[in-house]
């Protein structure tokens, strides 16, 4: 029973928003697009398994049938045009099918038009900054904040802290190294465009449940989108080596219903009118100067 539910969970019966123990495969994710990599992963894996069984199967047959100890005498042939043509053509056909599927999925990913919301994501050593740019065609004023590793994980992860990573929990969920002080809050059923960049070195913004990662590169603004189907908390990590605390800059996205999000956003706007947050410390020239100093 436990094994069955494990297998079910591993192969997509339950949508997880965070990794879980003994997980064997990718998850289908939580956005309108995230099934694309998941399906491609499963299809290409299946293709590889079938080819593997055929090739390795033939090899094992050869290894048992043509053993010298069983009296096998070596044949002399070393050429067969028909065979060679077949095993060149058949893979080409399989590849064309895989290429067709991938190209379609990729093209839909690359289309950021028609988005209803824009969030700017900036990577820093070793935290993320989120600036809300616009929502439903309206510019958003001064809603932006830093998002860094939560305090409990941060204390536990110190070398020789003596603290137990298994004790870092939110409710029932272990959130060690996968929790932040202030998550990115977004609405569901909304095409959200992310403008991703960096203030120092290259980072990579990755929430597996959205199906993609995209590098945050200084001097470049990369665009990507997601459209989340179900409310929930989605966890990810920086995926490009960015220095000593690369392993300690998680990403948490909380997806709320549209009504809840609108409420949250107006609260934030009201708060920022009272005490405007400091401007984003992005300044490429100063960063470079600091690096060289």
């Amino acid at each position: 029973m436990a094994a069955a539910s494990l297998a079910l969970a591993s192969f997509g019966g339950v949508a997880y928003a965070a990794p879980h123990p003994w997980q064997l495969n990718m998850e289908p994710g939580a956005s309108t697009w995230s099934r694309v990599p998941y399906d491609l992963n499963n299809i290409s894996l299946a293709v590889c398994v079938v080819i593997g069984i055929l090739v390795f199967g033939a090899m094992f047959v050869a290894m048992f049938r043509f053993r010298k100890s069983r009296g096998a005498v070596a044949e002399k042939w070393s050429h067969n045009t028909m065979l060679e043509v077949v095993w060149t053509i058949v893979p080409v056909i399989i590849l064309v099918a895989l290429a067709y599927l991938s190209t379609g999925g990729l093209t839909s990913w690359a289309d950021t038009t028609g988005s209803q919301m824009t969030v700017k994501v900036t990577g820093y050593q070793w935290k993320w900054r989120y600036d809300y740019v616009s929502y439903l065609g309206q510019p958003i004023e001064k809603v932006g904040f830093m998002s860094k590793l939560d305090q409990q994980s941060d204390e536990t992860r110190q070398l020789g802290s003596g603290m137990d990573p298994y004790a870092v929990k939110v409710g029932d969920e272990n959130t060690y190294l996968l929790n932040v002080d202030k998550p990115l809050v977004v609405p569901v059923d909304t095409k959200i465009r992310f403008a991703i960049t960096s203030g120092d070195v290259i980072h990579s913004w990755w929430v597996p449940a959205f199906g993609w990662k995209l590098d945050a590169i200084p001097g470049i603004i990369n665009g990507a989108w997601t459209n989340i189907k179900t409310p929930g908390t989605y966890r990810g990590q920086c995926a490009e080596l960015c220095g000593q605390d690369h392993g300690f800059m998680p990403i948490v996205v909380v997806a709320k219903s549209k009504a809840d999000f609108a409420k949250w956003l107006s609260e934030q706007e009201a708060e920022s009118k009272k005490a405007p947050p400091p401007p984003a410390p992005f300044d490429a020239a100063a960063q470079v100067a600091a690096q060289r100093g």
């Binding site: 043509f66 042939w77 067969n80």
Partner: peptide, 11 residues
């Protein structure tokens, strides 16, 4: 794999 096929194999 085809080189092995029809050979006289030792390991």
């Amino acid at each position: 794999v085809t080189t092995m096929w029809g050979g006289s194999l030792t390991f």
